[in-house]
């Protein structure tokens, strides 16, 4: 068994248990809320219900992280099996990255946002895409951070990659300069094709040829 398979199997097993933990927390807090709603004369009832609602919100946050870890575990297993051509859904991996790297981003007063798009299969494995995105994050952090990076899977000149938009920051200029050597700056026509409201400098991270099915 390779190291990758070992890590993937253990991660998958741990995520399964983590989901069970989240399920118990969700049902127990949900039951407490149900019982509180049945009793109107409980002191500070509304405050307790609000606190339980926050528990539910945190469970949803944990579930999102669990889904991201599931994808990592599957990527590890697929890499070992070698039965399928290497590839991934770029949109899904961008979402995974934003979820898993949020803590790293916060350390540099940054935020990561993902713009949901349709599935986009590319001929590149999950680890390679994550490594490329992490390099972008590190470069932005190295330039002082304090920006929001908005990521979106896209195709440019028949090449699949990720649009990186710098938004909501007082350090956008320095971060733009740091990303310039790594990414392709987008200007002009392509901006008109983008679905979200443009607020800051746009870059393209080229990754692989677009895969058509």
């Amino acid at each position: 068994m390779s190291d990758t398979t070992c890590l993937a199997r253990l991660l998958s097993s741990a995520v399964h248990d983590l989901r069970n933990v989240l399920a118990v927390v969700r049902e127990s807090s949900g039951l407490t809320a149900d019982l509180l709603r049945l009793q109107e004369d409980v002191r500070k009832r509304d405050r307790m219900l609000a606190a339980l609602s926050e528990v539910q919100a945190q469970v949803a946050r944990g579930a999102l992280l669990a889904s991201a870890m599931d994808l990592l575990a599957q990527a590890g297993s697929a890499a070992e099996e070698g039965t399928e051509e290497e590839g991934c859904d770029l949109n899904q991996v961008c979402q995974l990255f934003c979820c898993m790297a949020q803590r790293l981003a916060r350390a540099s007063v940054m935020r990561l946002e993902h713009v949901a798009k349709d599935d986009q299969d590319i001929a590149l494995g999950v680890p390679a895409v994550l490594a490329a995105l992490l390099k972008v994050l590190d470069a932005a952090a190295g330039a002082g951070g304090r920006v929001t990076l908005r990521l979106s899977a896209a195709v440019r000149h028949k090449q699949a990659g990720v649009i990186v938009e710098i938004v909501d920051g007082d350090n956008a200029e320095a971060v733009s300069a740091a990303l310039e050597p790594l990414l392709v700056r987008i200007s002009g026509g392509l901006q008109k094709l983008l679905v979200w409201r443009r607020q800051g400098p746009l870059f393209f991270l080229p990754l692989a040829e677009e895969r058509t099915s």
Binding site: N20, A23, V24, E27, S28, G30, L31, D34
Partner: peptide, 12 residues
Amino acid sequence: DEKDFVDTLAER
């Protein structure tokens, strides 16, 4: 088999 989970869900 997750007793804590299933008993609570049943109650709800």
